[in-house]
Amino acid sequence: MTQYVLRRLLIAIPSLLGISVILFTVLALAPGDPFEELATNPAVPPDVRAALRASLGLDDPVHVRYFNWLFAMLRGDWGYSFVSRIDVDDLILQRLPTTLIVIGSSQILALMIALPVGVYAATRPYSIFDQIANTLAFIGFSLPTFFTGILFILFFSIYLDWLPFVYRSDIPGSGLPWFWEHVKQSIMPIAVLGLFQGAAWTRFVRSAVLDVIRLDYVTTARAKGLAERVITIKHVMRNALIPVVTLVALSMPAVFGGAIVTEQIFRVPGIGSLLITAILANDTPVIMAVTFVVSILVILFNLLADVLYGWLDPRISYR
């Protein structure tokens, strides 16, 4: 087991290097350049633009730029944003808490919806509860978040005037009112994301549990006279969790990467909005840093999922 994890971690190093090469090449080849606004400004002479490009190293060949980036990264220097003219790690650290809180809570919300609803619906397939849960789930993932977001704003902020729809990361004040303000402004973004994610997950959980619930060992457990609750939790859930673990592991890196659309709608200063601004402005060091951290997380969490499979089903062997 330990050996397996160690081996996977060792494989991860060349993986990450390969991923970084591909990322860098894609970004270097992709159209656009970071000085768009300079280009449309008649007061900035072309040679100034050229000098600026040169000073940021944009005119060097791709491989030179890649090695510069790699060695800087190895030394812990994440690079320097073309657009903000500050260090990239400062930019990311500034946004990390908000991202973790908002996106993290939304994923927890999604799990809290998906697990009980999915399991309960699967234990009573095609009952009224199941039908309603399914229909709501379909609505949930057939409406894009840009749409549900606006719907929420119209209803809760404009019609009812209950919740603010502009997220402010630094509300002045302290104590309970301060906390309450934070909760109020977080409700809508968390709900929009959580419901969208939860809707899809509900379907997966239901399907996974349905697969297990009719197996003979469950019938056996029932025949032994075990309580239905015990059967569901101890016997069914554990075996149904493999697909769920896979999906949760897949979405964990997104907790760091943020949610571009939702962050945009509610003006949440998360890493998703940092990434999309950087992409639109072609701010390569920022894109590189964010996507690279995401790929590290992808690899780590997928490894974690692989280890968890073994815990959930001891028969799975790692060879």
């Binding site: 494989i11 894609v26 970004l27 080849l29 897949l250 890196p253 790929s295 690899i299």
Partner: peptide
């Protein structure tokens, strides 16, 4: 390992610049 490497790669690629590139 190789196939999961590929999967991880696709999962971690930033879609937007890649799309721009492919379409361009």
């Amino acid at each position: 390992a190789a196939l999961m490497w590929l999967t991880d790669l696709f999962l971690s690629l930033p879609q937007l610049p890649l799309l721009l590139l492919i379409i361009y």
